[in-house]
Amino acid sequence: MTLPNFLSWTVIAMFSVSLLSTDTGMINQMLGLFGVEPISFYNEPGYWPWILVIMKIWQGAGFGSIVYLATITGINPDIYESASIDGASRWHKIRYITLPLVKPTIILMLLLAMGGIFYGDFGMIYALIGRNVALYPTTDVIDTYVYRALMDLGDMSMAAAVGFFQSLVGFILVVVVNSLAKKFSPESALF
């Protein structure tokens, strides 16, 4: 479950080619068994929002599970034993012990996610899509636009302005979410 977290997007892109290729892809070969025409995934942009979301979740789920499992493992088992003696059900232990003690980790992970919400994982998009112009309508993100503006157009000022705006909005979101975290859970806020 945690292995995909340690794989680079280049390796995952190789997996996606072996799954999605029109001629030799595993998905199209399975569709061919049912008499369905092969799908040209690398020429049809409509499939890619789903493919990218599935790939990102698959690759990132291991990291989240490690963080949350480490937090839950750090909870003193005597607390659960005391709750069992008092007659608490499994649901009560989750609701009144686990969730309140995991709340600081949830808030920290939310703050980290909000800081990167405007960053569209350039490594993932560029490894999976590359310079496939047919897929730009649904796969182009701010990071790939900045890269193209700099490399193809040579427009350094536009690339710098867009990158700065992206960082500024991310910073504002972190400050806003941190102030909300401070309001609801002062001990969980970063600053």
Results as ranks from 00 to 15, higher is better:
residue 1 M to D: 02
residue 6 F to Q: 04
residue 7 L to F: 10
residue 17 V to N: 08
residue 18 S to E: 10
residue 18 S to Q: 14
residue 27 I to V: 13
residue 32 G to R: 14
residue 37 E to P: 01
residue 43 N to Y: 13
residue 46 G to L: 10
residue 46 G to W: 11
residue 47 Y to H: 11
residue 52 L to M: 07
residue 53 V to T: 12
residue 55 M to F: 03
residue 56 K to V: 10
residue 57 I to N: 04
residue 57 I to Q: 05
residue 58 W to C: 02
residue 60 G to F: 09
residue 62 G to Q: 01
residue 70 A to V: 11
residue 71 T to D: 04
residue 74 G to P: 02
residue 76 N to P: 02
residue 81 E to K: 12
residue 81 E to M: 04
residue 82 S to R: 07
residue 82 S to L: 06
residue 82 S to I: 07
residue 88 A to I: 15
residue 91 W to C: 08
residue 93 K to W: 07
residue 94 I to P: 03
residue 97 I to S: 05
residue 98 T to E: 01
residue 106 I to P: 00
residue 108 L to C: 05
residue 109 M to H: 03
residue 113 A to Y: 13
residue 114 M to G: 08
residue 115 G to T: 01
residue 118 F to K: 08
residue 122 F to D: 02
residue 124 M to C: 11
residue 128 L to C: 04
residue 130 G to Q: 06
residue 133 V to E: 09
residue 138 T to Y: 03
residue 141 V to A: 00
residue 141 V to P: 00
residue 147 Y to F: 10
residue 148 R to Q: 03
residue 150 L to I: 08
residue 158 M to L: 15
residue 161 A to K: 10
residue 166 Q to V: 05
residue 170 G to D: 07
residue 170 G to N: 15
residue 170 G to E: 03
residue 175 V to N: 00
residue 178 N to M: 05
residue 180 L to V: 15
residue 182 K to R: 12
residue 182 K to N: 12
residue 186 P to L: 01
residue 188 S to A: 15
